[in-house]
C-alpha cells in the first residue's frame, strides 16, 4: 500500500519542475499583469504558459496570494467568472507593478548568472 503511494507520487511529479522558492511571487505577479484572475485561473495560466511544465501546488499558491495581498502588491475582489461562478479575483496594485519590475530584473540577473556558470568553458 505504502509502496503504491510512493510510486504514484513519483509518477505525478516525473515530468514537472518544482517551482523555485521565491519565484512563485514573480510568476503570480506576471500572470496578473494580463488582467484580474482568480486562484484557479492563475494556476491554469502558469501551467499553460509553461507548456504544462510548471505545476503550481495549491498549498503554495494560496499562502502566496494571501501574503502578496497583505503586502498590498495585489488586491482581491469577489466577482462572477465567465462561467457564472462566484470567485475571488486578484488584481495588481501600483505597488505590485513596481514589485514585478524589481522581481523581473532580479530574475534576469539570476538567470544570466546561472547561464554564465553553466556555459561550457572555451
Amino acid at each position: 500500500m505504502g509502496e503504491k503511494t510512493v510510486g504514484e507520487k513519483r509518477e505525478r511529479y516525473q515530468n514537472r519542475i518544482e517551482i523555485l522558492q521565491g519565484t512563485l511571487d514573480l510568476l503570480i505577479l506576471q500572470t496578473l499583469q494580463w488582467g484580474p484572475q482568480h486562484g484557479y485561473g492563475i494556476s491554469v495560466a502558469i501551467r499553460n504558459r509553461s507548456g504544462e511544465l510548471l505545476q503550481v501546488d495549491t498549498g503554495s499558491l494560496y499562502p502566496a496570494l494571501h501574503r502578496l495581498e497583505k503586502q498590498k502588491w495585489i488586491k482581491a475582489e469577489w466577482r462572477i467568472s465567465e462561467n457564472k461562478q462566484r470567485a475571488k479575483f486578484y488584481q495588481l496594485t501600483a505597488a505590485g507593478k513596481k514589485q514585478l519590475t524589481r522581481e523581473r530584473s532580479k530574475w534576469s540577473q539570476l538567470s544570466d548568472a546561472i547561464a554564465g556558470v553553466l556555459q561550457p568553458e572555451e
Binding site: H38, G39, Y40, G41, V44, T58, Y62, S81, N83, Q85, R86, A87, K88
Partner: peptide, 20 residues
C-alpha cells in the same frame, strides 16, 4: 469564511472546466 469560499470556488471552477 472567505478562505472556505475561495477554496470551494477553486474546486468548482476546476471541475466545471473538466465537465466542459
Amino acid at each position: 469564511k472567505e478562505l472556505e469560499e475561495e477554496v470551494r470556488s477553486h474546486l468548482k471552477l476546476s471541475a466545471q472546466e473538466r465537465v466542459e
